[in-house]
Computed example of a mutant assay.
Amino acid sequence: MLNKVLFVSFSLLVILLSACRRDQPFNRKLWNDAEGLDFKYRDGMLNDLLKNRKIKGMRFYQVTDSLGWPQGKKDNYIYYDIDVKYDGYPPSYVKRLYVYFKDSVAVSTKIYEHTEKKKKK
């Protein structure tokens, strides 16, 4: 009897956790869908984008054609905001996708995450 209860409890836990995941296939239109500065679908598509889309080897114009214009660009990289919590300055949480280029060809990607720790007064 105890084994049956544990099995049912574990099964429910697995179902609940998998339902909470927001993973979804990459969709160019949804990737660029924003409410102000909030891109609500990007975090859910990020795994599929990095796993199934080959960014490495793409030219700059191919990346921007697929992902839209980046939120930032400097020297040899561009970045796309994935999730940013604007509850003051600086933001309390930042998650970005960086794409690095050499001679206008993407050579690598990197996920950057940062949590701003609030100072105690």
Rank of each mutant, 00 (worst) to 15 (best):
M1C: 06
V5M: 07
F10E: 12
S11M: 08
S11T: 13
S11L: 15
L13H: 04
L13W: 10
S18L: 02
S18K: 07
A19I: 08
C20F: 10
C20H: 05
C20N: 12
R21W: 06
D23V: 04
Q24N: 00
P25T: 11
P25E: 11
P25C: 03
F26A: 02
F26T: 03
F26V: 01
R28E: 03
L30S: 00
W31V: 07
N32I: 07
N32M: 10
E35N: 15
E35I: 06
L37K: 15
L37I: 14
D38V: 11
D38H: 13
F39H: 15
F39V: 15
K40W: 12
Y41I: 08
G44E: 09
M45F: 05
M45A: 08
L46C: 07
N47D: 15
R53M: 13
R53G: 05
I55D: 09
I55Q: 01
I55G: 00
K56V: 15
R59A: 05
R59P: 01
Q62H: 09
Q62P: 06
V63K: 03
D65F: 07
G68H: 02
G68W: 04
G68Q: 09
P70W: 01
G72T: 08
G72N: 08
K74W: 11
K74Q: 05
N76W: 02
N76M: 03
I78Q: 02
I82G: 11
D83F: 03
K85N: 11
Y86L: 07
G88N: 07
P91A: 12
Y93Q: 06
V94P: 01
K95L: 02
Y98I: 05
Y98C: 00
V99C: 09
K102D: 10
K102A: 11
V105L: 01
V105Q: 00
A106I: 11
S108E: 14
T109V: 08
K110S: 00
I111W: 05
Y112R: 10
Y112H: 14
E116P: 02
K117W: 12
K120M: 06
K121Q: 08
